[in-house]
């Protein structure tokens, strides 16, 4: 099962390599990883989606905690969270397809942000499931290029 870990780390060079080194060394599977500065510029937040059973997630958490530069690890999988990915996708589109795609994207509340002669670029944000659904729906048109970020999450409510 996929777990989402919110990891607060010191914001200095080398921390990313310590975390990624730990994952490769111990053979854990990272599905995605997003790093960014937090409201406190000395702290970065990593949102790591890991694949594994409870036992593995427990080890991942404990081993992460042992890294000196890791300030806090929370498993937010079972929390009420807002999860988002950002997707950019370039799709084959002749004139007839353009309208069809536009309609389709409306349903997903995705936006068309660039229109070329024979292609267009769609931008979307949403949960992993939604992003996957968008990609699937665009496949029949012929996908030329995909870029997407990993998941970022935030726990709902105050705190």
């Amino acid at each position: 099962m996929k777990h989402t870990l919110a990891v607060l780390v010191e914001n200095h060079p080398g921390v990313l390599s310590r975390v990624s080194g730990l994952f490769s060394r111990r053979g854990y599977n990272i599905s995605s990883l997003v790093v960014s500065e937090t409201e406190d510029s000395s702290v970065s937040r990593m949102t790591i989606v890991v694949d594994g059973d409870e036992k593995i997630i427990e080890q991942v958490t404990k081993q992460l905690n042992k890294l000196i530069d890791v300030i806090k690890v929370s498993d937010v999988t079972h929390d009420e969270t807002v999860d988002r990915q950002l997707l950019l996708v370039k799709v084959n589109a002749d004139n007839s397809a353009k309208g069809e795609i536009a309609q389709l994207m409306d349903i997903f509340r995705a936006r068309i942000i660039d229109i070329g002669k024979k292609s267009l670029i769609v931008e979307a944000t949403g949960s992993e499931e939604k992003i996957d659904a968008i990609i699937k729906s665009l496949q029949p048109f012929g996908i030329l290029e995909i870029v997407k970020t990993g998941t970022i999450s935030m726990v709902r409510g105050a705190k």
């Binding site: 080194g21 490769s24 060394r25 111990r26 053979g27 854990y28």
Partner: peptide
């Protein structure tokens, strides 16, 4: 055993 700190295990590729 890779990743378990087994006897004589070292992450030499790392």
């Amino acid at each position: 055993m890779v990743g378990t700190d087994a006897f004589q295990e070292v992450d030499i590729t790392g």
